[in-house]
Design a protein around this nucleic acid. Structure first.
Lengths: 138, 138
DNA sequence: CTGATTGCAAACATTTTGCATGCTG
DNA sequence: CAGCATGCAAAATGTTTGCAATCAG
């Protein structure tokens, strides 16, 4: 989803469009990989729209609660956020740190087996891969 | 792996066996689900072997670095630890909080596809399921 | 003008670290 | 007795909250 599209949705839903909100959404849509609050803070500062960390955290909560973004957590302590789009998983390179999307998700089969074998009804899952990206293999 | 077995391994590798270390290992082997540091602190206190939180954190690091335990993180902020055994995933009930093991892991197929399609070499993955356990479905 | 948004400082939760002391082997 | 293990206090890290000031609609 593009920035303009999200902004329109927000406006249609009666939410205010502030400079900071716009900058955050803009940065998130430009980023291909999940972004941390610290990264957002720095990025906004560079772009001349500096915001307080509380603001960013509150904005992340707001955007998440309204399903504009999703939250992921990898091996480190911090949460990362990315624009909601197609359901996908991540390939985290343990060497360069680059994060890419996995092209497809085959977990639904596994979920069916879990229901059949153990009676547990899966509502959502989290799957992340760690390894070496094609660039770092050479 | 049982407590005695782990203790033996530790001793064979020249590590010291202290009261706290033994208690921690004992509790971890008795627990079927991943345990947090706070839980361990409480448990040890109840069992009369109270330890400082730094000690527990250091012990978790030690046991993890030596592959006696593995670390997992769910939706909350804290890490949880469990004895290394067969590779498995977790079924986290969003209602009662109970955590059970998924009976099998079918991710290797997915990993092969990732290598074929995207060239990314997966070294490890993390997969957790959230939903409703069979008990809470009624 | 009204309520959502923001900044600031302080609180909070979890984890880590430095240093002096104690205990295992 | 040497060196790992421990306790304590303090720091580091990431996140949340209360309150007063500001801004968008």
């Amino acid at each position: 989803m593009e920035t303009a599209e999200i902004i329109k949705k927000l406006r249609d839903n009666g939410f205010k469009i502030t400079k900071i909100r716009k900058s955050i959404i803009n940065h998130l849509t430009n980023c291909k990989s999940p972004v941390s609050v610290k990264e957002l803070l720095n990025e906004l500062k560079i772009l001349g729209t500096k915001a307080n960390k509380s603001t960013i955290y509150r904005e992340m909560k707001f955007l998440k609660d309204n399903s504009y973004i999703v939250e992921t957590q990898f091996e480190d302590r911090k949460k990362r956020f990315e624009i909601s789009s197609d359901h996908h998983h991540h390939l985290v390179c343990e060497i360069c740190g680059r994060i890419q999307k996995a092209k497809d998700c085959l977990v639904s089969k596994i979920e069916k087996r879990i229901k059949a074998n153990q009676g547990f009804l899966v509502k959502k899952h989290r799957l992340e891969f760690f390894g070496v990206c094609s660039i770092c293999q050479h």
